[in-house]
Design a protein around this nucleic acid. Structure first.
Ligand code: NAD
Ligand code: NAD
Lengths: 217, 217
DNA sequence: TATAGTTTGTGAAAATTGGAACAAACATGA
DNA sequence: TCATGTTTGTTCCAATTTTCACAAACTATA
């Protein structure tokens, strides 16, 4: 009994499952580039710090993608995971705040390489507005409402100073944004139908220091 | 109830507890700056998407820091959490790869503001070596071994291209590094006594897209 | 075709994690 | 001092998440 309908999975899964799918996908892309055609659950998880049953179970929530006694077709599984994650179609992204971090993100090919593209950027610094950076013209933050609406952009990366992050989130949501990738070290307050992911480097660092310190220098 | 039972060790806590402590601390610092002296578990968690019993339980693993019927002294609790995390002492950090992201991290005051300081940086680009960036002279990556040993640096941030990340990790570990904050989108292979935290923006973004896509645009 | 050897998919058990409830501790005010 | 109200610290319970074990499905070879 083949399952092809991703929207109807039998049991509910952890959000961690989704995060792991993203890791599997990255791994699969690497394998594909190296010419590997078939991979087993054992092989693909070997260097990921994830158990092979975990891998199989994660996939099982969405269907059957392997062949027993053989393994998984690298290319096919990559495509299936892309479909599950929804990154088989193109997603346009707006970036707000073209400072040190924003500029780095603009140059980063990891997003644009695939179907995630930063297509508009905003700032409130008169010295930056209308300048072109990494091939994209920086727009006035005051244009965010009409631009997001017109281009139907749902994803916003926030790279402004912490004090202004909430204000930008509010503006973005008013412009119908539904997903925020927040780099500012603040907890954003958003309605329930808006998804927020925080990239919190200080938090990661401090967690690391805790374990380092506990281990005795 | 005071901690009088030494035979039975306290229950072990989730690593998530440590991550949350870092968030509490950030919040406490903000409150302190705004002149708040006392805070309750209810107030401190209100905008954090964390329940107040969770907060109290997280703290309970490490001691009793509040006063019943009153709450927590902001400044005192901040100091206690700093002590728990081990960030009450200074930690020197090395950064490898002064590209777009590395340069942004160098400028970022969030680390240096407190006791986490990037004190040395490395690159392998002849055009960058010996140049000064954000007040720090960029060193040749070949000097990593002797410099880390000499300065007794245990924490390394990896901001090089994905293909070179493992090589840098190996070098850092050989130079007695014990903690790695990895920004390259690869899974690093390290010995058990080395701690790795990954800052994985693509992964965050793809997870976000999954939920956005599932919700119907 | 039969048999041995792999590897997947999955239900059930185990472990972990979060949440609710409540007694203990403290403050306040009569 | 006593009663009332507040907030913490902790225990117990529910829910989630991972791990384990194994039948099912497939390959290869004789
Ligand atoms: N740089 C890092 O490595 C790093 C690391 C972790 C977190 N962060 C966080 O990321 C955010 C950006 O960091 P950064 O180093 O790029 O800061 P930055 O000061 O270099 O850049 C901030 C940019 O945002 C713009 N901006 C500020 N307010 C705005 C507003 N209301 N509307 C539009 N644009 C606005 C500024 O003009 C500037 O260009 C900060 O919140 C910072 O704490 C940065
Ligand atoms: N820029 C971003 O926004 C962003 C976002 C997510 C992840 N990342 C990841 O972070 C890493 C750095 O990104 P970036 O945009 O700064 O790249 P970059 O190419 O701008 O910078 C890389 C730097 O590392 C140096 N380097 C390369 N190999 C080295 C080696 N063997 N020894 C010493 N130095 C070496 C290069 O000389 C360069 O200065 C990459 O792995 C990238 O995938 C970047």
């Amino acid at each position: 009994m083949k399952k092809t309908n991703y929207t109807k999975s039998k049991k509910s899964f952890s959000p961690e499952t989704i995060r792991r799918l993203s890791l599997y996908l990255r791994n699969l892309r690497g394998l594909k580039q190296r010419g590997v055609k078939i991979v087993s659950s054992e092989e693909i998880t070997r260097f990921l710090n994830i158990s092979s049953p975990q891998f199989r179970k994660d996939l099982s929530y969405f269907g059957e993608f392997g062949k027993r006694g053989v393994g998984y077709e690298v290319d096919k599984l990559a495509q299936e995971i892309e479909k599950i994650l929804g990154i088989n179609k193109e997603w346009k992204i707006a970036l707000v705040g073209v400072g040190g971090l924003g500029s780095a993100l603009l140059k980063f090919p990891g997003f644009s390489k695939f179907n995630e593209k930063i297509t508009v950027v905003f700032d409130n610094d008169a010295g930056k507005i209308n300048k072109v950076k990494s091939g994209i013209k920086i727009q006035d933050i005051n244009e965010i409402q009409q631009t997001l609406s017109k281009k139907n952009i749902k994803i916003v990366m926030i790279c402004v100073s912490p004090e202004n992050a909430q204000e930008i989130a509010d503006k973005a949501i008013k412009a119908n944004a539904r997903a925020i990738l927040n780099f500012a070290p603040v907890s954003l307050k958003v309605p329930k139908n808006v998804y927020v992911a925080n990239v919190d480097m200080s938090c990661e660092l401090e967690t690391l220091i805790y374990f380092l310190n506990k281990s005795g220098i």
